[in-house]
């Protein structure tokens, strides 16, 4: 029998049958887990119909995995949306939001491209986290 660290979810015997299903574990030494390389907040502002790109430098030298959420601080302060990429110039259908943010990942920086399709200037706040896991 080998050695390793397994942590099961509350109520599940780590030595029992249920724990053999890895989705019932909190931590499994056999599997990789996402490890945070950096995180932060950016604020993006754009005029009506405009865009703003904000980049955040990193030193990983490969494209990291990124997860980010954003909200319009004025029109949708309670509605956080996950970033997607490259939205159409017209006809955004994401829950009637006029704001879209594309998430991109490069070898020296990550970036967030805000596209404001409302009839007035807009500002979004974005929370991001990027990981050591990525293209390499």
């Amino acid at each position: 029998m080998g050695y390793g660290l397994l942590i099961s979810k509350p109520g599940i015997d780590v030595l029992g049958t249920l724990a053999q299903d890895q989705k019932n574990l909190i931590f499994d030494y056999n599997l990789n887990h996402l490890k945070t390389a950096g995180y932060g907040t950016v604020t993006l502002s754009a005029s009506a119909g405009g865009t703003q790109l904000q980049t955040v430098g990193h030193s990983l030298e490969y494209q990291p995995l990124v997860v980010a959420y954003y909200h319009n601080t004025t029109t949708n302060p309670d509605r956080w949306l996950i970033t997607t990429s490259v939205v159409p110039n017209t006809g955004i259908s994401r829950i009637a939001s006029d704001d879209s943010v594309a998430c991109l990942s490069g070898t020296a920086s990550i970036g967030f491209l805000y596209k404001n399709q409302a009839g007035a200037a807009g500002t979004v706040e974005l929370l991001y986290e990027y990981f050591y896991e990525g293209s390499s």
């Binding site: 494209q63 997607t84 990429s85 490259v86 939205v87 159409p88 594309a102 990942s105 490069g106 070898t107």
Partner: peptide, 11 residues
């Protein structure tokens, strides 16, 4: 593009 973009997109 040089950089990678998050899936999904559909235009």
């Amino acid at each position: 593009t040089n950089e990678y973009y998050q899936h999904d997109w559909f235009l």
